[in-house]
Structure formats: C-alpha cells, structure tokens
Amino acid sequence: MPRADAGDPAEMALAAPSTLRRAGLRALGDRAFAVALTGLGLWVLVIAGVIVTVCYRLARPAFAKLGVLPFLAGSDWNPVEDSYGALPFLYGTLVTSAVAILVALPVAIGLALFLVEMAPAWVRKLVSFLVELLAAIPSVVYGLWGLFVLVPWLRETVEPALGRWLGFLPLFRGPPIGVGYLAAGLILALMILPTITAVSVEVLRTAPATQREGALALGATRWEAIRMASLPYARRGIVGATILGLGRALGETMAVTMLLGNQPEIHASLFAAGYSLPAVIANEFAEATGDIHIGALAALALVLCGTTFALNAAARLLIRVPAERRTPARASA
C-alpha cells in the first residue's frame, strides 16, 4: 500500500490520542497474513527447485561416468553392460511428437474455427463439452484403446495402404506391425488435441470483432473474413498452443509406452517400433539397480524436464500477449 503523505508537523501535533491509532497492534494481523501467504507461494518455487535438484543429483553419477555428450549422442542402450546412449529415446520422442503435431494441429485449428466462427450456440456448447471430455480421459485408458483398437486397425488397414501408395518414401516402408512410431504419434495427436484446441479457441475469441466485421461488410465470405482478420491475429497464439501441445506430447508416458513397441533402436520407417524418454523411464526405473543405470534414467528425465520447461516458458510468453489485448466486445462472446 502506498504511504499517504502526512500533513505538516503542526497539524500532526494537533491530532491528539484517539481511537484512530492502534495501528501497531492491529496491523499485526495483516502482516502475519502477508507472511503466511508469501510462505505458501514460496512452496511453488521450492517444488520447482526440488524437482531440478533431485533429478540432477540422481543423474550426476551417470554424467560423471559416461560424459554428457557421449551419453546424449550414443545409440547403444545396454544396462547389462552399463552402456547407455540416449539417442534412440530422443529420436523416438521427437518423431512421435512430430507426427502428433502434424496430425493434431490442422485438426485442432479446423475444430477451433468450427467452434468459434461457424457452429450455432448449442452445437458449440455440446462439442466444447465433448472436447473437454477428451482431455479428461486418463492416459492409460488411451493406451488401452490404442492397443486393442488403433493398433489392429493400423496393422490391417492403414499401414498396408500407406505402404502401397506411399511406399516410395522411406517413412512408409517395412512390415506393418501396428505398434510403432505411427501408432504412438496418432494416440499423442488425439491426446494433445484438446490442449491445442482450447488455447486456439481462446485466442480466436479475442480477435477484434471490428476487423472481421469490416471484412464481412466489404462483401467477403465467411472464410475470407476468417483468413483476412481472424487467422493472422491468432497466429501467434496458435503457435503458442502448438508448443504447449508439443510439451505435453514429449512428456506423455503411458499411452506411448503401450503403443511404441519399446525397442531402443532408430528406424526411418514410421511403421517400426521405437522407444521414448518417458517410456524407458517407466519400464526400467522400478527395476534399475546401480547408480549408473538409475543415473542414466534420471539424466533422461532431466533432459525431458529441461525441454518441457523451455517449451512451456516459450508457449506462455507467446500466448500471454494476445490475452492482454483482449477486446471486451468479443471476450464476452
């Protein structure tokens, strides 16, 4: 609270003892409350600190023994011989996340445009509810569905078809086994769809109505108005939403563990089995013995942690800007 300036000293002397002055005692309550609240807020910082510290301390033996660069660039993972290279996991994580973004982004934008610009109110309400439902389904249930529905469908229908038509690309070569980069990427796409959609809807809603109405008044069709006014305005926010979705995809564990095949190998084909950072942690951590094995897994966690930290920070910076420019007219829509 800013201090109010007192009057001149003569008048202050005039102001004799009164019921107005018990500030010292009473202000204690406010001060105690402020201290307690600050303490509670600091917990968030403590947690962030603890996460980084614990991962780092667990990972240190592995970094010391293996070296940071050889560890990150090595492609051999063999706990029996204490040989650890992170490359297959980095690769698997990146490829599955890339598939997820490539599939989810256009669908999410289409869905968001449908919700904000096209759907009548009741449809919008219903579809928004369903998309939220998609976000509420636990990851292990996605994995279950993926394993028994998505994988057989990919193996019997999609992958043979892709191989037949696009087999000249290395991406779509090889035997259709169902589990692999494609299956994991698609399930990830489904899981990050609600995130990207929700943020895109939010930024599209904040696009100023005046520009869009201006375009419509010039005789533009609805699509032209969207392309001229809404999309350019929302671009930055949608990029932020995509990064946020990417962050989720990188860290997603269960569904990927169940659908990726869990082979510490690197393949060009999306049909092949691979492995990801979270998946190897999920599979090996409980049974890991020895500081180096635990350390190597913790090092992978640290990589994951650092990447998602950076991505989330970037996404927040990108998304916050349009939110501040919010125009009341559309914000209430």
Partner: peptide, 21 residues
C-alpha cells in the same frame, strides 16, 4: 495524498493512523 482531513479535529492522514479504524 497531500494535505489533511480532520474528523473532529483528528487528522486522518497523520502518521500512525490506521486506515482500518
């Protein structure tokens, strides 16, 4: 705020006065 506001001769803006009271 500068200046003073007196209620029955007591200055609301004198030092040590608690706005809550």
């Amino acid at each position: 705020v500068e200046g003073s506001v007196l209620i029955e001769g007591e200055d609301l803006y004198a030092r040590g006065v608690d706005p809550v009271f």
